[in-house]
Design a protein around this nucleic acid. Structure first.
Lengths: 248, 248
DNA sequence: AAAATAGTGTCTTTAAGACATTATGAT
DNA sequence: ATCATAATGTCTTAAAGACACTATTTT
């Protein structure tokens, strides 16, 4: 065997935590939402008073994978430790293993994204000693000074969350169990400009024919309008849309 | 810090190599295709004459990631070394890091899939000392006795290739640059039963309106029919089909 | 009454689905 | 002439797109 191999110096789990923030919320009015990413500011100094690697920059929460766990379990654990959030939807989306991506050695990062609802989010605010935690609008996040290769990881995470929200029923994790067409629309509008989704009347009609969404019979809310508004919920139907069928 | 961390004992790249095999090929007739996965049989004994871990079982090609490369580069290199194939389309799809998945220690496997055309495949047959390499129809592969956790990896790879072929233009890697509607249909039929794709007349019409496929003006072939048949090619247009639009 | 949002009526346009027909060219 | 495959004609049906209109309820 002529090749020289090397064992990695570390294996970490990083987490891109996405959440919806309702920007305006007048009574009887549909929400205006933004999709945000949770970042933490790396401490400038470590416990021993030395300058920290990439200190002061913004980074994804995460940390080293422990002895008896895999990266997904580590990601769930770290998120709980660092922000107090009990995660609902956590999923691997990429691996970052470029030699030299971290000065401290050959550290392999297993990147996950998490989706948490606005309700879950309130747990953070409770847990809040965290002046070093903030939510950043996904449209602004790439402007920040980011640690390590987290710019790349976040760029990839944004692509993933955008296509997940449009191509799967992942939006359910950003909404209450029962929601109005305009609330779903508000979530989707954070990741698409498609007029078929953004037009009110069109979407109000369309939602009734989506196989993976069902009407909650006889149940309405006045959250978004003075007129009582029909509630819907996601059911368990899974759908795939081949690019070779349907209309363009 | 109370947690104990551990560095991985190894980092490997595994590769699920998919290829199309034309089962029947009478002249002037559309092809009948099957989608196959390339497997290698693990040697029973190693170079020192000892019994090999998981020897005799079938496994995905792959191996340890080297010093100055990342897993993707390693996957490309290994595939070339083990089968002589210069890869066209290689992509990460999953990570397997369960403690205990490999007796030899905590080995993290970075799984990739590769798509190679029937033309590229001929390179293997050339390189063929390989009685230990075989192609297995994707419908039969899970019946085999598979090494390590490769059953799980392959199961995941099958899900990924199926949705890639239907939701992206990945099929182009299984076809010649220029192809007829029935050749594309033959590829897609290996992963779907959707009548909108399988019906001849419907698909012959549909292909003309797909934004990511274009007619090769004035160019035809008689590969699939006595009647000269229009050739098409993929262009660079990328498409996404939100589940919230289109018909069901 | 005014304002805002939900929801429907309806007309036009487009595409899907089904089925039949025509076109082509080797044998 | 026959056969297989490609390609189009055409009718029906369903959904998209557009726009106007109605419905509801708080202020």
């Amino acid at each position: 065997m002529t090749k020289k191999y090397r064992t990695p110096d570390g294996y970490t789990a990083d987490i891109a935590v996405f959440t919806i923030v309702t920007e305006e919320s007048k009574p009887f009015t549909p929400p205006v939402m933004s999709l945000n990413l949770l970042l933490i500011e790396r401490a400038k100094w470590n416990a021993e008073g030395e300058l920290n690697t990439e200190g002061g920059k913004w980074a994804l929460p995460g940390g080293f994978v422990g002895v008896h766990e895999n990266a997904l379990q580590a990601a769930v654990r770290e998120l709980k430790e660092e922000t107090g959030i009990d995660c609902v939807h956590m999923k691997h989306f990429g691996i970052y293993d470029e030699p030299g991506r971290d000065d401290r050695g050959w550290i392999i990062s297993n990147a996950h994204y998490a989706i948490i609802s606005e309700d879950d989010l309130r747990q953070i605010k409770a847990n809040d000693d965290a002046s070093d935690v903030k939510l950043v609008n996904i449209n602004d996040v790439l402007q920040l000074e980011l640690a390590f290769d987290h710019r790349q990881i976040i760029y990839d995470a944004l692509s993933v969350i955008k296509s997940e929200l449009l191509q799967t029923t992942a939006a359910k994790n950003l909404l209450q169990d029962e929601f109005t067409y305009s609330e779903l629309q508000a979530v989707l509008s954070t990741v698409t400009k498609d007029p078929a989704i953004l037009n009110e009347q069109a979407f109000a009609r369309k939602i009734k024919s989506l196989p993976f969404i069902e009407k909650v019979e006889g149940k309405t809310t006045q959250r978004t309008s003075k007129k009582a508004t029909q509630l819907y919920r996601f059911n368990e139907v899974e759908v795939v849309k081949p690019i070779y069928t349907g209309r363009y």
